[in-house]
Amino acid sequence: MKIEMELNGRPVAHEIAPGGNLLSVLREIGQFSVKLGCETGDCGSCTVLLDGEPVNSCVVAAARAHGHQITTLEGLLGDPLMKELQHEMVVKGAVQCGYCSPGMLISLYAHFKASGDLSEHALREALTGNLCRCTGYVKQLEAAQTVADNRQNESGGAS
């Protein structure tokens, strides 16, 4: 079957298998930031945004993207918030093998966009869907905390 979706702001039409997951379709069309780690919705390497919400694309039907907006890390490379998150992740040493990094970045991005709760617990919660086997999540949380602090300082300054 054929689906039409808005991928990173641009219309994309693609022929898919009715039982295929969104992960395979996205990789097929060159979105290599979307990784396969488990295909059971547990590891989060395949996290993308579906209408702005983080989802595990391995447990989302490809067909479901029809008529919807899909955003991958590729589509956010120019976004100031994403750039800030990437920068902090690198500088803080949160990227080891890097396989989990795009998924984590998407989850953090979605959390920052949606939520006012930037407590450590909320940030940990935001990362529950992204398993990392290399790190102890310390550096990612440090990076996220820095971005959170920057935001709080900014909004503190503005008001």
Binding site: G41, D42, G44, T47, L50, E53, P54, V55, N56, V59, V60, S107, E125, A126, L127, T128, G129
Partner: peptide, 9 residues
């Protein structure tokens, strides 16, 4: 229930 991205769908 599950993890954050799972709960989105």
């Amino acid at each position: 229930c599950g993890n954050r991205p799972v709960r989105s769908t």
